[in-house]
Write a protein that binds this DNA or RNA. Structure first.
Lengths: 214, 214, 214, 214
DNA sequence: GATGAATGAGGGTTCATTCAT
DNA sequence: AATGAATGAACCCTCATTCAT
């Protein structure tokens, strides 16, 4: 069996085992057994538990990022871009719960080197959202003229908003995975309503997409 | 030295060690040393590493819940109640980062028994939020009559919204802890804007509290 | 059983096992078993295989050095001092063959850190011999006046001579240990004859102590 | 590439690796890599690590023995024969430090089978020296008549003297290898002075070759 | 009430060795 | 003739846990 194939089997086994049992609780014996190979082979190909874990994190990070990137509809309004990105995000996390666990939970709980790696993806997602709502805000701002009160959110505020949105998405990803019957689509719809309309307007019965101010 | 006091010192040491090093990486030796007692004493009082961890989770859960409960202003409008609860939440997590790490990260990453315990608190917070916005929605609904489109969110939708809000709060808690210069107050304000106004209205320069429809 | 006693038992077991099987071939399990304790206890007291080995080297080095130092008769002529030192040296090595193996063979064959440690003792012995024959040479030199040819050995030559003498002693130590019936005393006598008289004079039937030039 | 050539490359690599890293620390992977061939080929040609090591020892032993044998000037007096043999010995060890390490250090530190093999060469060298000084002694003895005191050394004493001389040579070989600036020639001269003249006469300023009693 | 002393069990890692091709 | 692929066995080390005092 060629090396590349075996290597992927091992990483699959590792992601699955790390994701379910946790980084420390997963033994290299476990992983080798799940992969259907001997332990020395895992070491031959992937060097050490740490490197294997890092490799898993990177692979899952790349996969998630690519899924989201591929899902975002380019050239449309900010809310539509967000909506499409969220759809891809929830579709991916729902379909790869172990990978999501590695990325979102395990990598962030077992020490700096791993956390740093996981932070990279998250930071990219946060940056994407920040840029998205930043652009939308500036656009709205110019179309409005300097009115009283508020104005476009400052950079610092944007950062916080993006953190909030990403956190909400992470939470809903777990909700969709754990709650039977909740689809990726529903999660995306829920989050669009929540984030774009806000509870205030939701109370009034409005839903996204609104009768469209834009 | 009375037992109760010794016990609290041990739990303090445990929360600190678990929170910083992680459940698996923290050894009973470490904890005993940080607590300033001998290891057998830890076992005498707290039986096993698992029980000790569970005890930590429960204690921190109770503390957080009490802080939030005490912080919520009773008898005011939903948004004000939320605002006061968030303020208390961020104040507590910011002041007890190790406890928050135990609760939010460690407990949820190291297997079922612990995750279940941590899920309890989270579920309570989610339930609180659900009930809050549910009440607000019903109230708004009756004052409006059956108009076209939408209406009050269904229970299932409320659950999702609450998940989103709690996730956003968790994310901002981490943001406030890790980012120097971000205060609990700022986190709360950011989240109020995000959740109550929604990005849509924020883009238009509005901020919470709005010129107030209510 | 008090810690100090256990610790000595472990080091005895370690010296014996390292000395007979070699550093790498001796497993910590072996050593623990020979010592009659569990493996973790060995680690508790002595930290690691490397540290244990270093500790063995140091202990055996100190023992050998003390034996020789205690054996050298002070204040007598150089040849008598050498003879007494050699007696003590061979007596010690013959009685502690495992310690001698650790010091002379194992420590010098398994990497820099250990070799450096072993080199210390050897260097001290070489220095002792160098100083001994150096003093004797200077003494003989002054009593002679500048005659033709030769003169007292230069420093560089002294160093080589000391190396040769110590090497001869090491060789005879192994010879005495391995050859049944060869006593420490005989080894010492042989080496005195060889080193002090030289083969040239031995051929002529002379033996040490000579009819005494000094 | 013919088998014989490949085989020599492997043994060169093995001697180098064993000599520098030590028998246990040298892995078959290392050796194969240094040799520039695949590991199974090493096994195909040399069967096992043990056999490979034995083969190395034998080869280096033969090389050393041949160098010394070729170096000894035949038909001259004993001291001149010794001197020529020592010259060859130091020249060879100085030029082949890895082989010397294998022979003198590694082979003797890693268990019986190897030590036995190394003992063979050493015994041959010892035997050569024994026979050399034995012949010289008998010769001197007959030319002297039974005088008082001593007489020619007994066989047992000769054995010890040879051990001492060989040990001194081994020590000086290491000294010459490790000390920059010390040549094989100097080592040989030092040892001739030490062994043939003895410290006693050296102290008096004499050097070898003496003004010659013979 | 408190601890010094001790261990069973298991995890990460390496290595000599062998097939199938 | 030569090798890429694979593994059984062992080794160093750590840790949760328990006695005897």
């Amino acid at each position: 069996m060629p090396r590349a194939v075996r290597e992927r089997m091992m990483m699959d086994a590792a992601v699955r085992t790390f994701g379910r049992r946790g980084y420390r609780a997963a033994s290299m014996d476990d992983i080798a057994e799940v992969a259907g190979v001997s332990k020395p082979l895992v070491y031959l190909y992937l060097n050490s538990k740490e490197e294997l874990f890092i490799a898993c994190i990177r692979r899952e990070a790349a996969a998630l990022l690519e899924a989201v990137t591929a899902g975002v509809q380019p050239g449309v309004s900010a809310d539509l871009q967000l909506r499409s990105g969220l759809g891809a995000f929830f579709a991916h996390t729902t379909e790869h719960p172990d990978g999501w666990s590695v990325l979102h939970r395990q990598a962030r709980t077992h020490g700096e080197p791993f956390a740093r790696e996981a932070a990279k993806v998250r930071d990219e997602l946060v940056a994407f959202v920040t840029q998205l709502i930043g652009a939308a805000a500036r656009e709205a701002d110019t179309g409005r003229g300097a009115g009283p009160g508020g104005g476009a959110p400052a950079d610092r505020e944007l950062a916080g908003l993006a953190q909030a949105l990403v956190g909400a998405a992470e939470s809903l990803a777990g909700w969709a995975i754990e709650t039977p019957g909740v689809s990726a689509k529903e999660a995306a719809a829920t989050l669009m309503n929540f984030s774009w309309m806000g509870l205030g307007r939701l109370m009034d019965g409005e839903r996204w997409p609104a009768t469209a101010r834009r």
